[in-house]
Nucleic acid binder design. Structure first.
Lengths: 329, 329
DNA sequence: GTAATTTGTGTAACCGGTTACAGTTACTAA
DNA sequence: TTAGTAACTGTAACCGGTTACACAAATTAC
C-alpha cells in the first residue's frame, strides 16, 4: 500500500500538501493539486483510516449492538442503520449481545478501543454505567431511556391495541404470552395488554416464555395449548411465537381465526406470507433503524440534538388470523 | 482515556515495560509486573487498538460482506461467523452488498483502509481483481471459487435432490423457479434440478425471478399460478419464495401437498413453523458461517491451509408440503 | 511605493502504541 | 576471579496520517 509520503515524493511536494489536497483543506495551487491528484491516481493511493483515526482520536466507525441477528426483527433494524450510515460514510462494527450483560460490555469495550465515534445499542439496561461513562454519543434502539437518546416504538400501546382488537373481535378466553422478563419491550407489550384486559374485565391466562428463539417457540406453543386448550384468542409476544402458535393450532385442528384468533407483534416480513397470514402489531423496524442512525450522526456532528427521543407509533395490521368486524367508526 | 504513558508514569516504569506486561512479551520482574498491573487497574487502562493496529499494520478486525441481512438465510451465516470470531477475539466490520459490484468494492476498500486482517465475502464474482489484488486472506462464503478458499454447500446436488424427491412423490407437471441469474448458488440449484428433470423426461416449466426479496416473492407466486395453474410440483429457489408460493396456493384453494407439492431451499428457521411446514433442502448455514470464520482465522494465523475448499452436503428435509412415500431402501 | 493581507508550501511535532537496541545488574560456569 | 549469559529496564524510532507554525511569494489596500 502506498503511503502519503510515496505520493508526496512522486508529486514532488510535502506530505502536508498531499494531505491538504486529499482533505480539501487550506490553500493549494491548482497546478500543485493536479500534480498530487495524478500521483494519487498513479499509485492508487487511499489514505490509511487507522493513522487518521489515531491522530484525530475519532474514526468513521460506529458500533452496533443487537441482541440476536437471527431473530428476523433485528435484521430490519440493522439494515436501516446500515443504509443510513453507509450513505454518510460511516461503517459499522457489529455484535450480537444475546441480551447478555457481559457480552455487551465486552463489545462496548472493543468499540471504544477501536475509536468508534458512536454506538447504537439494544440493551435492557440503558442506565448502567457501561453507557453513562462513555464519552461518545449512544442511541438506544428498540429500547427506551428517558434521559438518553433513543428510538423505539410504543410497545405498551401496541399491547393495548392487540388486546382491544382481540376483544372487539369477540375472544372471551384470552391467553397472553408474556415474553422474557428481562426484555423490556416484551414486558411493555405484556403490560399494555393486561391493562386493557383488566379494564374490560376479560378473563385471561398468561404463558411465560424465556426467549424469542425459534427452537423454543414451538415448546411454548405446545405448552400453551396443553394448559389452555379452550383459549379463543392469543396475544403472542412476537411474530415468531405467533407463528409457532399458529402452527400448533393447525396441528391440533383448531381453526384460525374461527376457533382461536392470534395476534403477533413486530410484523416481520414473513408474517404476510403465512397461511393464514398473520394479524399483528406493526413496528416500522427499518425506519427505526434509519432514524437511530440519523440521530446518532447528528449527535456526532453537532454534539447536541433537540429531539433525542423518537417514539414511533405502532398499528394493527389486520390479516387473516383475526376475524373481520364492521369498521367501528 | 488513559494512555500507556499515564500507566508508565503511575507505575514509575517506562512505556516499554508496560507494553511488555500487557502483551506478556520479554522479561519483566514479578514486582514490576505487579506495580504495572496495579496502575492498569487503577487507571482502568485498556490499550488503544488503533495505535496498535497502526504500528503492526494489522488489526483484530475482519470484514464481513453479505448480500442482504434481511434475507433470513444470511443472519444464520453471519451469526456463525460472529460467534467463531468473537471466540477468537476478532471483531467484525459488516456490510450489505445487495449483490451490487460497486457497493462491494466500496466496502472492500474501507475494509482495507481499516487494516482488517481478513475478509469473508458472499460475492458473485470471486475472481474479480477486487479480491485477487488483496494482500490479506479472503474466504468466500456461500459462493464457490476453485482457487480461493471457500465454504459453500452443494447447490447443484441440492437441485438434483429436490427434483428427485418431486418425481418420486409423483409430481408430473413441475414448475422450477429459476432464481436471479446473477446469483450463482441460485443458478446451481436450478441447473441441478433441470438436469434430473431432463434425465427423467419430466415436463416442466420455468419461472424466472430477479431477486429474493419478500415483497417481490408474492408477485412471482402469483405469476406462477397465473401461467401454470395446473402445476403439481414446485421447486422454489429458496424458502422465501416457497413460502410465498405456499401462501398463494392456499389463497387459490389448491391443496398442499395433495394438489401441488412444494420444495424450498435453505431451511431457514421459519420453514418448520409454516402450516403445512415446508419441505426443503437444508443447508447448514450457521455451521457454514463458523467454518468460514475458522478457515479465515487459520489463514490469518498460519498463512496457509491444506483444505481451503469446504463443501457442505445438503439434504432433503421432509415436512408437510410433500407427500409421504414408502422409504425406498 | 509600502504595508497588510491572502495564497501557497514545507518542517516537524503529535496521536498511542510496539520494538530494536543499548545498557545495567544478577547469576552461572570455568 | 572473570568471562559469559540471562534477566530486566529504558530510550527513541517507527507506523501513516494531520496540523500548528514558520516563511515566502503574490495580491490588495492606501
Amino acid at each position: 500500500m502506498a503511503t502519503i509520503r510515496d505520493v508526496a515524493k512522486l508529486a514532488c511536494v510535502s506530505v502536508a500538501t498531499v494531505s491538504r489536497v486529499i482533505n480539501k483543506t487550506g490553500y493549494v495551487h491548482a497546478d500543485t493539486r493536479h500534480k498530487v491528484e495524478a500521483a494519487v491516481k498513479q499509485l492508487n493511493y487511499t489514505p490509511n483510516e487507522v493513522a487518521r483515526s489515531l491522530y484525530k482520536r475519532k474514526s468513521r466507525l460506529i458500533g452496533l449492538l443487537l441482541p440476536d441477528i437471527t431473530n428476523p426483527y433485528f435484521p430490519q433494524l440493522a439494515r436501516g442503520v446500515e443504509d443510513e450510515m453507509q450513505k454518510n460514510d460511516f461503517r459499522i462494527i457489529f455484535g450480537n449481545s444475546d441480551e447478555n450483560h457481559r457480552k455487551e460490555q465486552e463489545y462496548i469495550q472493543t468499540f471504544i478501543q477501536n475509536n468508534v465515534v458512536g454506538v447504537i445499542s439494544s440493551t435492557n439496561d440503558p442506565n448502567s454505567d457501561t453507557y453513562s461513562k462513555l464519552k461518545i454519543p449512544v442511541v438506544f434502539l428498540d429500547r427506551t431511556s428517558t434521559d438518553s437518546p433513543s428510538v423505539y416504538s410504543d410497545g405498551r400501546e401496541g399491547g393495548r391495541i392487540a388486546a382491544r382488537e382481540m376483544i372487539s373481535r369477540g375472544s372471551k378466553r384470552i391467553t397472553v404470552m408474556q415474553g422474557p422478563v428481562h426484555i423490556r419491550p416484551a414486558q411493555d407489550r405484556f403490560q399494555g395488554a393486561l391493562e386493557v384486559l383488566e379494564e374490560n374485565k376479560i378473563s385471561y391466562n398468561v404463558i411465560q416464555t424465556t426467549s424469542f428463539s425459534f427452537a423454543e417457540a414451538e415448546l411454548w406453543a405446545k405448552e400453551l395449548f396443553d394448559k389452555h386448550l379452550d383459549t379463543d384468542g392469543i396475544i403472542a409476544s412476537n411474530d415468531i411465537v405467533a407463528t409457532a402458535v399458529l402452527h400448533e393450532a393447525h396441528r391440533l385442528g383448531r381453526r384460525v381465526p374461527d376457533d382461536v384468533q392470534i395476534i403477533g407483534f413486530d410484523d416481520i416480513p414473513l408474517s404476510a406470507l403465512l397461511s393464514p397470514s398473520l394479524s399483528t402489531i406493526h413496528q416500522p423496524a427499518y425506519e427505526m433503524g434509519r432514524q437511530a442512525a440519523g440521530l446518532l450522526i447528528k449527535l456526532i456532528q453537532e454534539g447536541f440534538v433537540e429531539h433525542r427521543n423518537i417514539q414511533f407509533p405502532v398499528h394493527f395490521i389486520e390479516r387473516d388470523t383475526t376475524r373481520k368486524v364492521e369498521h367501528h367508526g
